[in-house]
Simulated scan of single mutants.
Amino acid sequence: MLLLAAACAREVTGTGDDGPGGGSGGDAGPANPNAVALRVEQVGGFVAPASRLTWVPTVTIYADGRVITEGPQLAIYPGPALPNLQQQRIAQEQVDGLVERARAAGVGTATDLGRPSVTDVPSTRFTVSSAAGTDKLEVYALAEGAQNASGLTEAQRTARGELQKLLAALTDLAGTLGPDNVEQPQPYQPEAVAAVAIPWRADDNGLTAPPEVAWPGSALPGSPPSSGIDQGCVEVRGAEATALLATAAKANARTPWTSGGDRWQVGLRPLLPDETGCADLSVD
């Protein structure tokens, strides 16, 4: 069993070409429009590395006001081949206000968040970036560490409660900022897709395999995205990405993709604006 280290981790970095820059206020967001101003993501947990590589952040807010989230997913098996990513837009002052709200909730402080008495669940990582720097706060078992969770002090429950309120606010921006201040969600159109491949195997439950589909990109399985990972990954761009997205819309998570005479099960991960390729995917 994988027993995660809990507590909270804080990382502060200085400014750079892609780091915090100008904006409209004292806590202004990064100057690079593709720089992340605020992100919430799930990390760790007792999950297969291939699955973690294709996880999508819960919410990412960029310096130019773009907001990318994962929308509702169909509760079916096998699930869709592509995640339901949606994009909205908010004003720059709203971005700055949310960054300030995240810092006020404890992101960027050495808050004692404790560790609830649960194991093998993910941590929630909050990242904020502004002229004040980049800060990360990682809290183990945020959802599971509710007010009645054992193993926590009252102060730790209170601190976690503020982060739970922050998460709720960020995942309901129309309710937080007002519907007139948030554009209606539209499907996110990625410029590139990372594909994590493993050999395809038949289901033990006897379900009929979906039809095979020819892989439109570079030969699978590709190279591991980082050391210690045994899954291959390839990047699909341009016309091949357009063809892949059209085909994947009709496929599912168990579709056998054929490449090099073999069949592969492929996890498709649309790359976000701040990501450049497979190397940006992580199992941390």
Rank of each mutant, 00 (worst) to 15 (best):
C233D: 10
R237N: 01
N205Q: 12
L166W: 04
E191C: 02
T258S: 14
L167I: 03
G267T: 01
P211G: 10
A246T: 15
T171F: 03
V182D: 14
V266K: 07
V234N: 00
A174W: 03
Q189K: 07
V196Q: 05
T242E: 12
Q184M: 01
V236Y: 06
P190D: 04
V213P: 06
A192P: 02
C233E: 09
V213Y: 08
D262V: 03
A249S: 14
A253I: 06
Y188I: 11
T208A: 13
T247N: 10
W257F: 10
A169T: 03
L244S: 06
E212Q: 15
K165M: 08
P225M: 01
R201G: 04
V182Y: 08
Y188R: 00
N181L: 02
R263W: 00
P256F: 02
K250R: 14
P199A: 08
T176R: 06
P199S: 08
T258K: 11
G232R: 00
P221K: 02
D172S: 14
G222C: 09
D172Q: 13
N252L: 07
E191H: 12
A248D: 04
A202K: 08
A194W: 03
A251M: 05
D180Y: 04
P225H: 00
S223N: 14
P187E: 05
R201H: 11
A241C: 07
A253V: 08
P187N: 11
R254Y: 09
L170T: 13
T247L: 15
D172E: 11
L170P: 14
E212G: 15
V196A: 07
P211T: 11
V182C: 13
L244A: 05
Q265A: 13
S259C: 14
A202S: 14
G178C: 13
A192F: 03
P187G: 09
Y188L: 02
A197S: 11
P256E: 01
P216W: 08
T242G: 08
L167D: 00
T208P: 01
K165D: 14
I198L: 14
G267C: 06
S223A: 15
L244F: 06
A197V: 07
D180C: 07
G178M: 11
S223R: 14
G261V: 07
R263L: 03
V182I: 12
P199L: 06
P187V: 11
A251R: 04
A202H: 08
L244E: 00
P210L: 02
A209Y: 06
L268H: 01
D180H: 06
Q186G: 01
G222W: 05
